[in-house]
């Protein structure tokens, strides 16, 4: 891992899963998330097993749950995931 991967310049907290079998590029998605200034957490899992959110697909209190191609349980193409997260952060 490069130093750039470990520093998180965004005000959004990102919790990663372990990354054993990711369907999406978690690092790239995290880097694309626009700074939103909110206090929400993005629980970013590479696949639908949703390890970052303790296997939950949706939880309004925990934050935004990305589980592979699902954003808060809604099927989302990988390329659209950063925008979907940004929309949720603004809500």
């Amino acid at each position: 891992m490069t130093p750039a991967d470990t520093t998180d310049p965004r005000p959004v907290d990102v919790v990663y899963c372990g990354g054993c079998n990711p369907e999406i590029d978690r690092g790239a998605i995290a880097r694309e998330i626009e700074p939103a200034g909110g206090d929400k957490t993005v629980l970013l899992s590479g696949c639908a097993r949703a390890c970052a959110s303790d296997h939950q697909l949706v939880d309004e209190t925990a934050g935004i749950i990305v589980a592979g191609r699902l954003v808060d349980g809604v099927p989302t193409a990988p390329a659209d995931i950063p925008a979907a997260i940004a929309r949720r952060l603004e809500e």
Binding site: H55, L57, V58, A67, G73
Partner: peptide
């Protein structure tokens, strides 16, 4: 490896 679904129930992987 199951997950909690939006309905609140748990589904297998």
């Amino acid at each position: 490896e199951g997950v909690e679904m939006p309905a609140g129930n748990y589904q297998i992987d």
